[in-house]
């Protein structure tokens, strides 16, 4: 009997016979996937996260049932959906670049940081990244995936994940430049959180 304590692989395998079991996978992962998609492309992200699960359900026989966590696989599918919206993602980022410095946020992470200026520069940094580098970086920073999980999601070797993220971060730091309050690492050293795990 499958229940909410079964891991994703077990549930997905069971869903081959009892399709309703897949609903548990949905409840488990939908909020995170949806948040990630909306954060990347705005409200169209809801459609992408929705179709992610429909697609995942249809190709569930391809999921390795020994895997306990379906998140990387689902982010991979979501990533394919997001790619169709690349132009609107870039348009959004361009809009954020135009946000006036000083106009912003009642929620300061640090009073010395002008969140408006930072946001504009982050948007610019992200926009100018090659798509594949942006995907890797945001799976790391926004979806909280480990390097290994990102490798899984994007079906690329872990070394490639590492180099994409480090390249992306260098570019991001350059874009951030001398924003007040930003204490970036020296561009040559890139701490790899994924290595600690």
């Amino acid at each position: 009997m499958m229940d909410s304590s079964s891991h994703d692989g077990e549930l997905i395998r069971a869903s081959l016979d009892v399709p309703e079991q897949f609903a548990v996978v949905f409840e488990r992962h939908y909020p995170a996937i949806d948040r990630y998609c909306v954060r990347r492309i705005g409200l169209d992200g809801h459609d992408v996260s929705s179709s992610t699960f429909v697609t995942a359900f249809r190709i569930r026989d391809r999921f390795d049932p020994t895997r306990a966590n379906a998140a990387p696989w689902l982010y991979g599918i979501a990533g394919n959906g997001l790619r169709h919206h690349r132009r609107s993602e870039l348009r959004r980022l361009r809009a954020y670049e135009r946000v006036e410095p000083g106009a912003v946020s009642s929620f300061d992470i640090d009073d010395r940081i002008d969140a408006g200026a930072v946001g504009a520069r982050l948007a610019r940094g992200l926009r100018t990244l090659p798509t594949r580098d942006r995907d890797a970086l945001l799976l790391f920073a926004w979806a909280d995936l480990s390097y290994e999980q990102i490798a899984d999601a994007l079906v690329i070797p872990i070394g490639t994940v590492r180099s994409r993220i480090s390249r992306a971060r260098i570019r991001l730091r350059n874009a951030l430049g001398e924003v007040a309050g930003f204490h970036g690492d020296a561009p040559s050293t890139v701490p790899l959180r994924g290595d600690d795990q």
Binding site: L43, Y96, V118, L122, W142, L172, F182, H183, D185
Partner: peptide, 15 residues
């Protein structure tokens, strides 16, 4: 605050 912290705390989304 490094670049990653900033990126993590930045929510370019309204929801």
């Amino acid at each position: 605050m490094n670049d990653l912290d900033l990126l993590r705390s930045w929510v370019p989304s309204e929801l």
